[in-house]
Nucleic acid binder design. Sequence first.
DNA 1: TTGACATCTCAGTCATTCTTGAGACATTCT
DNA 2: AGAATGTCTCAAGAATGACTGAGATGTCAA
Lengths: 109, 109
Amino acid sequence: MRADLPVLPGPRLDLSAPDVARAVDAAALLSDRTRAGILRMLRDGPHCVCEMAAALGERENNVSNHLARLREAGLVRASRHDANARFQYYERDEAAIKAAGDALRGVLG
Amino acid sequence: MRADLPVLPGPRLDLSAPDVARAVDAAALLSDRTRAGILRMLRDGPHCVCEMAAALGERENNVSNHLARLREAGLVRASRHDANARFQYYERDEAAIKAAGDALRGVLG
DNA sequence: TTGACATCTCAGTCATTCTTGAGACATTCT
DNA sequence: AGAATGTCTCAAGAATGACTGAGATGTCAA
């Protein structure tokens, strides 16, 4: 099961650094329990802040902070509810989500 | 393009927190430029520490530290070179890599 | 054996990020 | 209008994680 090792002598010192910036950014957003939970919950459809805060056991201002980061990254967008505009309903931007997944797949293969 | 919002009144306060622990762990490992670069380079086959350190422009002990974390997570394994056992050649554990990708896909969909 | 090389470990320092708390704004209800 | 609700912002404290530096281990070459 072990791969063949390169012929010696001499390690290759001419390798170039791979471009992983986009994957790293995507991973950083997913590396927080609250943000990952948000993105997972939004797979099932839009939710407002208070719903997600209650489900995650987090304060609403904290969830709002994380949503701001996801918004700035373009992964989610918000819109007020038609019938009761107090509620901000969040939904995923599936194109951006897909781009993030592609970037991660570029690293994991 | 906007999804339908749930009927009001009343946000749902009975939602449960999704289990994202594995995805968060995988993302945390990928959220560092050095570790992501390592995993990307190892897609092309095994490399020793000094090769990767040179390519990434990082010190060897730093790369070694990151490799230790990837090793403890089971994503890579090391073996000494047959002809020159000074070199530790690292390769990916593709099964573990796939598991990490599956966990991330569980969040991103 | 001695010296050079490749790698590893670990503690200390530094930077980044998360959470909290207080306050502000907009919307709805009475 | 005033009170209550849902959300947002931002500064400050708390926690987490990366990098450095020094030293130790194991391997090869002279």
